[in-house]
Simulated scan of single mutants.
Amino acid sequence: MNAIETTLATTNKAFIAYMMGNQTLVKDYQTLVAQGATIVEIGVPFTDPVADGPVIQAAGLKALRAGVTLQGLLTTIGTITAKPAPIVLMTYLNPLFAIGYESFAQQCQRNGVSGVIVPDMPFEESHQLRQLLEAHDVLLITLVTATSTGERLTQMLKKARGFIYAVTVKGVTGERRAFNPAIYDFLAELRTKTTVPVMAGFGIASTEQVKALLPHCDGVIVGSRIVDLLEAGESAPIGSLIQATKQ
């Protein structure tokens, strides 16, 4: 089993913490682990992050100005000797094209990356990358939205491994005050169609939202709020968010 699958097999409700890949990567990863994150998702800074809202966009641009690259991030991740929380990279396609799929898969395995999310890669075009990654014990995480339906959704769920990233809002990442009540039905329905853990992500920012979503899914993914808190050096509120999944 891949490290993600092994971890989630013994986790009741998971908390996946997103952080931007930047010059404080090692320190931020260790902070998230210390606060109890189940899995850490590391964003690769990119100039046109179509799935990201203003908080993550700003963090990505700051990292780019500091000279952070996908190649550099892979090397830095490799220096983390203990990885109690499996690492998932969130990247866009262009950086992968620059490195090449095969080289990227090899470097992920060598440096201890367990999964990859590519939000601008259509499912229908993911076969080659998925095969190359899995050959190196790295999983390509499947993203689904409420508009993913019918036979296409069936095929997506068949290929899914690790966890399913269920997008809870229309639009980009970023904190939301409330969710459309229909999202709870969407999450619950997904769980009836797959044995792969379903993680709810996008827009989650408070312990109240975490607790409201948890009965309908297997865990949550929190991004913009975590990025803000890491930037401010505030670890205690991160711990409070994570503890909401354990209560």
Rank of each mutant, 00 (worst) to 15 (best):
V198N: 07
Y184K: 09
P181Y: 09
G203N: 04
Y184C: 06
A166K: 08
E134G: 01
G171H: 01
C217N: 11
A146I: 08
I164T: 06
C217E: 10
H136G: 07
T173H: 00
R161W: 02
V196K: 05
T168H: 06
T142H: 05
T142N: 02
C217G: 14
V169F: 07
L157P: 01
G162V: 12
P181H: 03
G171L: 01
H216P: 02
S148N: 05
K193P: 07
V210G: 00
E175T: 09
T149F: 12
T173I: 02
R161A: 11
V210W: 05
R152Y: 05
L214H: 00
S206H: 02
A160M: 04
V196L: 07
F163D: 10
N180T: 09
Q131T: 15
L133N: 06
R161T: 10
V169L: 00
T147D: 07
E151H: 14
F163W: 12
S206C: 06
A160I: 01
V210D: 00
K158N: 08
T207N: 03
L139M: 06
M156W: 03
L153G: 06
K211W: 01
V167R: 06
A146R: 12
L153F: 00
F179E: 03
K193G: 14
K170E: 15
T207A: 14
G162W: 00
S206F: 04
H136A: 12
P215A: 09
L140W: 04
T207H: 03
D218K: 11
T147P: 04
V196Y: 02
M199G: 11
T145R: 05
P197S: 13
A135G: 13
E151C: 13
G201Y: 01
V144F: 02
R176G: 08
G162I: 10
V198T: 13
A178G: 06
S148H: 04
V172R: 13
V144D: 00
G203A: 04
P215N: 08
E175S: 14
I164F: 01
V198M: 11
L187S: 08
L190N: 09
E151N: 15
V198Q: 08
E151G: 12
V144P: 01
V198K: 09
V172C: 00
D218E: 12
T192H: 15
T142F: 03
D185R: 12
Q155Y: 04
H136M: 04
Y165S: 11
V198H: 09
